[in-house]
Every structure is written in C-alpha cells, then in structure tokens.
C-alpha cells in the first residue's frame, strides 16, 4: 500500500511571494509526482522556482494554491523525513566533521547519543571521509565540505533527499566524481531524490527522470525518462540515446533562458 503512494506529489501547486515591487509568482499550477526511491532531476533557468519546489517539499513554505503530499499525506509544516543538501555546504565552522554530521540530533534533542555518534561515523565513512572526523570545515576542500553536507543530510536516514544544486560550487572534475559517488550511495541505500541542477549532463547521468521547468512563473514543460541502465559510470553519457535526450533537453531549455535570466 505504502509503496503505491508517491513519495512526493505536487497537486496544482502555485506559489506567490509578496515583494517590495508587488506580488511575484514563482510557481504556477505545478503537477508532479515522484515515486518512492526515484531519482528525479529538475532543470530550469535561474529564478524559475526550482528551489521553491524543494522548500515546499520540506514544508518550509506552504503553497499559495494546491497542495504538497509527502507519502500521501498533505504537508502542513516543516517535517524531518527529509535531508537537505544546499549549494554551499553551510557547515558550522566551529564544529568538527563529526559534530557537523551529528548536528541535526544535537539541534533537535539537545544531545547526541552514543549510537547516533556511531551512526555518524558510518555515514562519514560512506561519503569517503574516514579519518577526517576531528577536522574543522576550514581544513577541508570544497568537495570534502560538500561531502560533510551530504553526510549531515543522510545522518537521520531520511527517506527523501532534497538537493539544491549541491555540486554547482565545485570545480568540473570534482563535480563529476561527486555525482558518481552520490549514485553509489543512493544505490547502496535507496532514497527518493529531488535534485535541482543547471547542468544537463549531470541531470542525465544521475537521474531516472528529468523535469524541465519554464521561466517564471515556473511550471513543468517537459518530463523525460532517462534511457540508461544502472549502474552508470562516466562512460554512460556516450550512448546515442542519451546524446539525443541531452540535445532535446537543450532545445527545451534554450527558449526559457531568453528573457528569463533575471534571477
């Protein structure tokens, strides 16, 4: 029964913000459902409301119209069945890697139990940072900091992972490597992933489905299944079907960029 309901579902969701220069419609009648443990990438121009979509799923925003369902239940406020990874790792600069990863427990309950610390060590190992537990964020590279950010999101073992351009601040090589590592983590412990990105190759390489959104007010203009088997690696992008899909996505995105790049 639970398997049949979608992990995330947006039903005719619209979002309007009040700004100094009048109301701003970020999203308009978005209909989108994401199956449990599916990896979905969202592409779109800057300011098309991609991040708004994530915040709606997290319950940090309530939609102006329509509703958001998580596992079939309407979202009516923040909930913690989600892990969030941001564009910048946004770690606590005074806390060690271990303390950063266990921070959700400490922040939520005021203390960290031994089992939780053990679990944090396992997650840190899984993201490839074993041996760095006692380091401060400033001692780590950008890619390693983002690994800590991912470990922090995985620490509470949420069913849903919301990722807001998590690798866009990294250099190209690190970015590719991190994407493939994310796939490994995801395959070892399946989760529903909503992954916002600007990069077509990244979206195609990682996701089961790619959603394309229009410029503001954002709505879904395309929903494509990626014709690629798993597991994938850096050579996966060479297949002709994938090249074709990437070209099509580019075609879809181009018109949204013209006049839409105002952020």
């Amino acid at each position: 029964m639970i398997q049949r309901t979608d992990a995330i579902r947006f039903n005719g969701v619209g979002q309007t913000f009040a700004t100094d220069s009048g109301p701003l419609t970020a999203l308009e009648s978005v209909d989108l459902s994401i199956e449990r443990h599916q990896f979905v990438a969202v592409l779109g121009p800057s300011g098309c409301g991609k991040s708004t979509l994530l915040r709606l799923a997290a319950g940090l925003l309530s939609p102006t119209s329509g509703e958001t369902l998580i596992h079939g239940v309407a979202v009516d406020g923040p909930h913690d069945d989600i892990g969030m990874v941001f564009q910048q790792a946004t770690l606590l600069p005074w806390a060690t890697v271990l303390d950063n990863v266990t921070f959700p427990a400490k922040h939520k309950n005021g203390r960290v139990f031994r089992v939780e610390r053990e679990r944090a060590r396992q997650v840190i190992e899984a993201v490839g940072l074993k041996g760095f537990e006692a380091q401060l964020p400033a001692q780590l590279s950008g890619g390693m900091q983002q690994r800590v950010g991912i470990a922090r999101a995985l620490f509470l073992n949420p069913d849903i992972l919301l990722m807001d351009e998590p690798f866009s601040a990294l250099d190209a090589l690190t970015r590719d490597a991190m994407g493939l590592e994310l796939l490994k983590l995801w395959q070892a412990s399946p989760k529903t992933v909503l992954f916002i990105t600007h990069s077509i190759p990244e979206a195609v390489l990682l996701a089961d489905r790619v959603i394309v959104m229009s410029a503001r007010p954002g709505h879904v203009i395309a929903d494509r299944v990626v014709p690629l088997d798993r597991p994938r690696d850096e050579t996966s992008l060479r297949s002709p079907e994938v090249q074709e899909l990437a070209a099509e996505l580019r075609q879809l995105l181009m018109p949204t960029l013209i006049g839409g790049e105002r952020s």
Binding site: A58, P78, H79, M84, Q88, T90, H107
Partner: peptide, 23 residues
Amino acid sequence: TPPELIELSRSLRAPAYRQITQI
C-alpha cells in the same frame, strides 16, 4: 547566519532558543 542553516533548524523543528544558542 546563512539562511540554509535556519531552514535546517526549522525543518528539524528544534526549539527556538536553540536556533539562537547553537546557530
């Protein structure tokens, strides 16, 4: 404070004083 950390705090539904003391 980075707004992302405040969002993290909100999604954890932590007591408001901890947002001050811990973040």
